[in-house]
Amino acid sequence: MKNKLFLLFLSVAVFATAQIEAPQPSPKAKVMQTVGLTDVTVEYSRPAMKGRDIFGGLVPYGKLWRTGANENTLITFSDEVKFGGKNVEAGTYAIYTKPGKDQWEVMLYTDTNNWGNPAEWDASKVAASVMAKTEKLNMPQESWTIAINELSMGGAHLQMMWDETLVRVPFTVPTQAKTMANIKRAMSGPSANDYYQAAAFYLEADQDLNQAHEWITKATEMNPKAFWIFTRKSLIEEKMGNKQAAITSAKKALALAKERGNQDYVKINQDNLARWGA
């Protein structure tokens, strides 16, 4: 009798502590993207269509929507950004929306501890509210999808897609301000690489080319065997409209790249020289 009781107790204990792991109908997803120098992360759940009418049906028009399923859909910015033109401090926000047939209201909400919609909406917790037009996708999207696309040095688009609907909200990041601050700090005691990085940024960001040329020249003086620096110098000189100087720098870069056996830079400079007729 005691053995039976012991076995019964053991069985109850096992069933009490066992956990069944099974797929969720709306699986979790996480999107991590660096935009310029800013890290952006989105965490959300992905319900599927499963033959249902989505917007105007499962998700009513004009009603507050959790923008996904289960816990709050969250977006985190590592820096202060402009979201749809609105200033948003660094931090984590819940994304709420009011879908409409022609446009959506997209809101960033500071309270991120809700399951679904808040029991009581607090307008003071809305960090940003943006109106975004709906667009039609070329083909239906079976699962609710959030992406960060259309990347540039200074921003991107938060894209939300389901069924045949696409909504996107542009946001900008402080890449230029952060890079300028980094350059300013580095210039107090710059290395050849600091000068190179600063000049490369000025070239890509369409900043003062004369300043970029001054920095890249100092970089070549400090590291006269760096074929990649001479290559960048030639591109800056091309953009300044000084083709002859660009040819001279590219020939120097080509010779150094051949000397070091770097075939990638050999080809880059050969292609540039051919493009310039040299």
Rank of each mutant, 00 (worst) to 15 (best):
M107E: 14
L64D: 01
P118V: 04
M161W: 01
G62F: 10
E120Q: 14
L158W: 10
T112D: 06
S143L: 04
D79W: 05
A128W: 07
G100T: 04
Y96L: 15
Q141V: 12
M161K: 15
Q159N: 13
R46F: 03
G56D: 09
A94N: 10
K101P: 05
K63F: 09
N87I: 08
G85L: 14
W115Y: 13
R66S: 03
Q103A: 15
D53T: 12
E142R: 13
D111M: 06
G85Y: 13
A119I: 09
V106P: 02
F77V: 04
L64I: 03
F55S: 02
D53V: 13
G154P: 00
V88H: 05
M139D: 13
N72Q: 11
T112L: 07
K101A: 10
E80K: 12
N113P: 03
K125I: 05
A94K: 11
S78D: 05
M161H: 04
D53L: 12
V88W: 08
V88E: 02
L58W: 08
V81R: 00
L108Y: 05
N138I: 01
P47W: 12
D111T: 09
F83Y: 13
Q103P: 03
H157G: 00
A69M: 07
S124K: 15
P99A: 15
K50E: 12
T92R: 13
A147K: 09
G84Y: 11
G100V: 06
G91N: 05
D102V: 09
W65Q: 04
F77R: 06
R46G: 02
I146V: 12
D79R: 02
D53M: 08
S129Y: 10
L64F: 03
L137Q: 03
S129D: 11
W144Y: 15
Y96I: 14
N138T: 14
A94Y: 09
N113G: 13
G85W: 14
P174G: 01
E89V: 13
W162A: 01
M161G: 00
Y61R: 10
L166T: 00
A90W: 05
K82M: 11
G57V: 02
W104E: 03
K133G: 13
A69F: 08
M160Y: 02
G57L: 05
T67I: 07
I148V: 08
K101D: 12
P60G: 08
L151Q: 00
K98L: 13
D111W: 10
I146K: 02
